[in-house]
Amino acid sequence: MKNEALPRDVFINEIFDEAKRNRNIYFISADLGAQALDAFRKELPEQFIHAGICEQNMVDVATGLAQNGKTVYLYAMAPFLTFRCFEQIKVSLASMHLPATLLGVGVGYSYDDAGPTHYATEDISCMRSLAHMEILTASDSHAARLMARLSYTSPALRYIRMDRQALPPIYTEADTFIIEQGLVEVRPGKKIVLFTNGITMKMAFNIRENLLAQGVELALVDVVKLKPISLERIREVISPYDKIVTYEEHFLSGGLGSCILEAMADAGICKPVLRVGIADNYHCENGGRGRLQKLAGIDVESATKKILEFSNRA
C-alpha cells in the first residue's frame, strides 16, 4: 500500500475547485493551515475567513453565514473544533438545524507529541450527542474526496473526521457508493468481523494478517458513517458473522463501539461483542503514537491478542 496525499488536502482541493464556481462557499479556519489551503486563501480571499484562534466566534459567524444561504466550512484541529465550542455548535447550528461542515483534523492520538490537550479521544461521543449531526470518518483520500463532494451537493450539519497523517488507499475511484452504504466491508472474513475506521483501519489490516496466520479470518468493515447508522445495513453486514469486534483510537465511552452496539440493539441483533478502545485515562507520555497506543492497549500487537482470545472463546 502506498501513501497518497493527506486526506485533508484532498478534501480542501475539492472544495477549492467548487468554490471557484460557487461564490457562496466560505471556508473558515481557526488558524489551522494545510498545503491545499494556501492556494485557496490566495485566489479566493473573500471566501476564506481567518477566524483567529476563536472557535466560539467561528461557529457563530458560520451560523450567520449559513442563515443567509452560504455553504460554510469550519476547519480546525479536531479537539478545538468540537469540545472548545461545543455549546456554540449545539445552540447556534444544531438547535437552529443549519447546514455546516465541520472539518476536524487530527482525531485520536494524531497530535501524538502534543499530549491530551490536542488528543481528540472524545470527539465522537461529544458530537454524536447533538441532534441533526451527521458524523463521517475518512479512512483514505478517496473517501475524503467523496465527503467533500457530498458536503456541497447535499449540505447538512456534518462533522467530518480526518487523521493528521496520510492513510493508505483502501478504495478505488469506482467505489462511489461508500458514503451511501455507510458500513463498507473492505475485507471478507469468516465468523468474526471487525468494525473500525481511520488510523485503526490501517492498523486493522495488520491485525488481519496476524490473525490469518493463526487461522482466524477477520472481516473488516469501514464505519464510514458513524451517525446515523442504517439498521438495515448493520443487519446485512453482521448477519454472516457470529462475533463482532469494534476497534478505535477513542475512548470506549460513547465512541465507535458504542455506535455499533446501540445500532445492534436497535436492530435486534444479539451477538458477542468485543470493544477495543481507550479506557478512561489521559496519557501524558513521550514516545509517539505507537507508544500511546501500546499504553492504551490498542496497538496492533495488543489488539491482535485480545481479538484472538475473543475469537477462541467458546
Partner: peptide
C-alpha cells in the same frame, strides 16, 4: 426567542452568541 417566531432572527437565551451570528449576517450582506 427563536427563529420559529416570525421576525426573530436567531435563538438566544444562552448568552454570548449575538455579535458572532450578526457578524455572519454582516459579512454575507
Amino acid at each position: 426567542p427563536d427563529p420559529s417566531i416570525p421576525g426573530v432572527e436567531a435563538i438566544t437565551g444562552s448568552l454570548g452568541h449575538g455579535i458572532g451570528i450578526a457578524s455572519g449576517h454582516a459579512l454575507a450582506g
